[in-house]
Design a protein around this nucleic acid. Sequence first.
DNA 1: AATTCTCATTAAACTAGTTTAATAAATATC
DNA 2: GATATTTATTAAACTAGTTTAATGAGAATT
Lengths: 190, 190
Amino acid sequence: MEDLKRTIRSYTHVSDADMKFGLQFYKKQVLKKGAYLLKPGQYIDSFYFMKQGCVSYYTMAEGTAQVMEFFTEGYFFTDLYAYIEDIQSQSYLEALEDTVVYTISKTDVQKVFDHSHQLERFGRLSMQRTFVINFQRINQLRNLSNQERYLELLKKRPTLFQRVPQYLIASYLGLTPVGLSKIRKRLSQK
Amino acid sequence: MEDLKRTIRSYTHVSDADMKFGLQFYKKQVLKKGAYLLKPGQYIDSFYFMKQGCVSYYTMAEGTAQVMEFFTEGYFFTDLYAYIEDIQSQSYLEALEDTVVYTISKTDVQKVFDHSHQLERFGRLSMQRTFVINFQRINQLRNLSNQERYLELLKKRPTLFQRVPQYLIASYLGLTPVGLSKIRKRLSQK
DNA sequence: AATTCTCATTAAACTAGTTTAATAAATATC
DNA sequence: GATATTTATTAAACTAGTTTAATGAGAATT
């Protein structure tokens, strides 16, 4: 769990004792491609750290997936909305590849925060990081064209396009597969 | 500062001693309509609690305001992006009405968090709240039509329409004034 | 009261997407 | 290796917005 440790310490100082206390609760979990961590109607009980693989986070509407995010190596993730609000999820968390995650339960997260001010600070700072990512996402949705957002994604996460089918990327960008195909054609003609 | 206290305690338990410690740093600040708390190029050094009034949070692009948010009574706010990232702001915080805020400096916020685990928890939980709001915002931007978003806003913050000119609301919704006018016409014809 | 200024609406031409359906290409399965 | 299935592209018709410009209506200023 070295990379989990490293990722936590990239946010704030955590003593060896507190780190040991925190890490004891994480369990390794292996997922085959196509397996689900979460389906609509379920309560989400865990937080995950992505060790290896790719998980898509999406809802279904009128038979098509609305992809909210692709979680890849180094991401802390869960259905954060349902997790925080403590409501039945409306979403799927599905492995798009064979995947390894480290899992910690909600009650254990609470234990860790109660026990360690340093790790509670890590919690606050990682929530801040999530804020920044979402803020930039909102700005992109508001101020960039679909074409510009496609180019941004291509620049920021180029490997995603090798790992994930295009129609899911279209969905992530808020487009239909036809729309994304048009954009790609337009760009290739320049 | 009773409503500030009440708002903090709506997130988590805070002892009287910790609350007293925290509140000592807040200062009252009065703004005339049209006054700025922040302009592009400045570093944002404060967090604000809105006691009374309305502040718009926007950037300028090609001569037009891109409104990100309207802060009204009970909001904790700042240019959170520039605040967290510690970068020069690209935004304005402008009073749209005569306004009263309680202000706390960044260094004092840090003092408060260092001194009180309970208030650090409040910090984490208020960041969670911000996450939920942004998450819903992203979902609305992705999954709702402009017309639906207009109706949502009308339902959620009806008084805003009495306080704020329509072209700023159009901007908030990611529309031109012409676009919003068309939507309103379409709706009134039904 | 007249004038100026700001804000909202309307019209017309345009644009970047949508939907539906057909086809082509790539991948998986037998 | 042939076949079935999934994924990507293209075309055609459509739609909800855009931009620009003109008009109308209300509020503020003199």
